[in-house]
């Protein structure tokens, strides 16, 4: 794919904080119009990668192109095309929600074209916009943060754990908004440590641990590659707990012969995926 078609291209990124290596030789590509889920446990290097991508931390090595251009830290016009939600969102407690949105809108230099729509779809109570952010719940603060990131309709959205603190209904609403943005051609890179959250919305996911990108694939391919967890109980009281890869139809055929009173099938969770990856690489 030509370079210009990439919303994000990271080549050989290494970020060190003193002796500690946060990100090691990471390559990553997010195509335009793609939703890319950046997955990994806490401390895996997701936030350091995102901060390097935004020019908030200077990479020790590597090359980063955002919307086809290098030097995001020095290019204001390029940053105008980015919407960012930090992982540990800190709003100014003395500003009201409305003042916060206006402040960032002023810095973004564009009219907040989608602000009202986003607030409505997230279900943010409008009267609360006049209250100081210090009085907001975690979820309300996160909704304001999401609106800050999206209100100027940027080309690239970089969201660090955007669903933190949101209740399931708002979370679903946010993921729907992200899917819509992608359909309109916006590119989205969002990090999470929950696979199930990413799968409903991401085209591809990248798995990162200990600062290294372990795998990049579609969610479907990931599901097919790693075993699902199957737990059940037979009428005679005996239980089984197994891992299965491959067709669900085959699994159901196997189970049909057994007299089951309970069955639970769960996709492979992130920690198991990393365990499998470790086994595959022998580490």
């Amino acid at each position: 794919m030509p370079l210009a078609d990439d919303a994000v291209r990271i080549e050989g990124l290494t970020v060190r904080y003193g002796a500690q290596v946060a990100v090691a030789d990471l390559d990553l590509r997010v195509a335009r119009g793609e939703v890319f889920g950046f997955l990994g446990p806490n401390g895996a290097g997701k936030t350091s990668t995102i901060r390097a991508l935004l020019g908030l931390v200077r990479p020790t090595a590597g090359r980063i192109l955002v919307l086809g251009q290098e030097g995001v830290a020095t290019r204001a016009a390029l940053r105008a095309e980015i919407g960012y939600l930090p992982g540990d969102l800190a709003l100014q407690p003395f500003l009201t929600g409305h003042e916060t949105l206006e402040f960032f809108s002023g810095l973004q230099g564009r009219p907040p074209a989608t602000r009202n729509e986003i607030l409505d779809r997230l279900g943010f109570p409008r009267p609360a916009l006049g209250r100081p952010c210090s009085s907001y719940s975690t979820g309300m603060r996160q909704m304001i943060g999401v609106t800050v990131a999206l209100q100027h309709d940027p080309q690239l959205l970089v969201l660090d754990e955007p669903t933190t603190g949101l209740d399931p209904l708002v979370r679903r609403g946010l993921l729907e908004i992200l899917r819509e943005r992608a359909r309109l051609g916006r590119s989205i890179l969002f990090s999470s440590h929950v696979l199930s959250e990413v799968e409903s919305c991401a085209d591809r996911v990248g798995l990162v641990s200990a600062g290294r990108l372990r795998l990049v694939d579609s969610v479907a391919a990931l599901r097919a590659r790693f075993p699902r967890r199957v737990r059940g109980q037979r009428r005679d009281g005996s239980r089984f707990d197994l891992e299965q890869t491959g067709s669900v139809t085959d699994l159901l055929d196997d189970l049909r012969a057994q007299d089951l009173i309970d069955l639970e099938i769960r996709p492979c969770d992130l920690s198991r995926i990393f365990e499998h990856l470790d086994q595959e690489t022998g580490s």
């Binding site: 908030l56 105008a80 930090p86 540990d88 969102l89 800190a90 960032f104 973004q108 230099g109």
Partner: peptide, 14 residues
């Protein structure tokens, strides 16, 4: 607090 990141990620020049 992490609040500066949000400001520096906007087009505001340092």
């Amino acid at each position: 607090r992490g609040a500066l990141d949000l400001v520096l990620a906007t087009p505001l020049d340092r």
